[in-house]
């Protein structure tokens, strides 16, 4: 793990293009170890996610289709660990919510499951059947929404993404996403 951590540290020192070129290998190496990595290096995870905001996600996914699922699994596993360690985020979780994320500019689908009783958040690649909410938009904006680069309320009001489903549930999601991004800033 320390070797992998060193590699990530080194890639983070590089330019955006160089980091993007490194990312498929880094994600492949992290596959199956993300939980342990985030537990041990929450700050590094935050920095890496922050640098991902510089990327253009759709071209990256188009160029690296085999990496798209790893990319999402990395993000969601990291978020899951953060929520497990963050009472502030758990405090915002009040009800079960399932969400599908669908990129409109590249083949990238994901999902999220908020468990109201367990106070957990899980997610990953692929969609769920019959989710409570559907969120769609350009891949950059969806990733920005997850990483906190896009404010959930402002992003919605300015149509950076669209949401289908009951308004009452949608408004429950905003504070969860908001506190999630604050917790690794």
């Amino acid at each position: 793990m320390s070797e992998l951590t060193d590699c990530i540290e080194a890639s983070l020192e590089k330019s955006a293009d160089e980091l993007e070129a490194d990312l498929p290998d880094l994600l492949a190496d992290l596959d199956g170890q993300t939980r342990e990595f985030v537990q041990e290096n929450p700050g590094l995870f935050g920095r890496l996610v922050g640098r991902m905001d510089e990327m253009e996600v759709a071209p990256f996914v188009e160029a690296n289709p085999q990496t798209a699922d790893q990319f999402q699994n990395f993000l969601w596993t990291g978020m899951e660990v953060i929520v497990a360690n963050s009472p502030e985020v758990q405090e915002q979780i009040g009800q079960d919510i399932t969400v599908n994320f669908e990129a409109t500019d590249c083949p990238m689908d994901g999902h999220m499951h908020v468990d109201g009783s367990e106070k957990t958040l899980t997610g990953g690649a692929g969609t769920l059947e019959d989710p409570t909410l559907k969120i769609s938009g350009p891949a950059d904006n969806l990733v920005g929404l997850i990483t906190g680069a896009i404010d959930p309320v402002q992003g919605f009001m300015s149509q950076q993404y669209e949401m289908d489903g009951p308004v009452a549930t949608g408004t429950q999601l905003a504070p969860i996403m908001g506190s999630l991004s604050e917790s690794f800033e």
């Binding site: 404010d151 309320v153 402002q154 009001m157 308004v167 009452a168 408004t171 905003a174 504070p175 506190s179």
Partner: peptide, 17 residues
């Protein structure tokens, strides 16, 4: 006082829409 923040902060405080 940015409206997005007004709405976001109120939701964080548990207000409904």
């Amino acid at each position: 006082n940015r409206l997005s923040n007004i709405v976001g902060n109120a939701l964080m405080d548990g207000a409904d829409m």
